[in-house]
Amino acid sequence: MKPVTAKRGAFFEKLYQLDRILRGDATRPEHLSKAEIEIPVVGISVTIICLAVVYGFCMGVFALVRGFENAAYQTAVLQTSASMCKVPLLFVLTLVVTFPSLYVFNALAGSRLRIFPVFKLLVASLSVNIAVLASMGPILAFFSLSTPNYSFIVLLNVIVFAVAGLLGLLFLIQTLGRLSVIEAKGVSVSTSTIAVDTPSATPSVTEAGDTSELSKPPRPTSTYRRKDSGPLDRPRDMKFNASVWRVFYCWLTVFCLVGCQMGWVLRPFIGSPGLPFQWLRPRHSNFFEAVYSLLF
């Protein structure tokens, strides 16, 4: 891998690392033998912050276009730059606020993951989340450009965030499960895990390779060995135990609560055309009260 790395520029190397996560190379069980995802945390963080800024810009296109239409140039530029700052901030601050509690819950719920692997896991899930967000950025930017209707853009943003968040969470649970299984194995079998693991999985590969010549290949026994299995699939020979799900649900709750409130605090992201520009709205109510008052 080293000589290939040397050939790429620093920029492409960073993108390549993100790409490894997206296509599932970084989280293949055979690459998780140390019970942690082997990714450069700093590099990935820089990349995803840049991507979040890109999405922030796409979000700000609405304010930019509407501002230029009404000759409110200052508001337009300010709101766009505010969106570009706030989207990365939303993710970074959420991670900073929740990380200690996530780690403690993880330890209490019976997972054996150490602090640094947990951090890497969270960064990797956020990178999936943000990569999906950024990939939908062009669609959002196009609709923001061509839609004067504020509610439509808010709705579209909510949908995009929901899709991205969902995929990020799917990645989180799958990788958490894989890590926990490997960690548990590693403790019981100690260092010989890899040596034991590889031969047991090899026959299934050759089996899958042989049968692929037939018109209808049978379901492979070990999915993750197949090249076409992704980071969102559960490897067939892995059973996630209850503690994995316990940790996941704790994390989900904490993450969603803090994430929603963080989004509320950092408003406005899009900028309602009727209101003057503000970096932050005055502190007022909270997300849950707002939703409650909307409903009842």
């Binding site: 997206l22 599932g24 939908m136 062009p138 669609i139 990645f171 076409d228 992704g230 969102l232 699939d233």
Partner: peptide, 20 residues
């Protein structure tokens, strides 16, 4: 096609279909 391709690419990668 240009506007829709980035999400198509990322979703393909995530669903493990990148090799195709």
């Amino acid at each position: 096609v240009i506007v829709s391709l980035p999400s198509f690419f990322v979703l393909n990668s995530l669903f493990g279909l990148r090799d195709d």
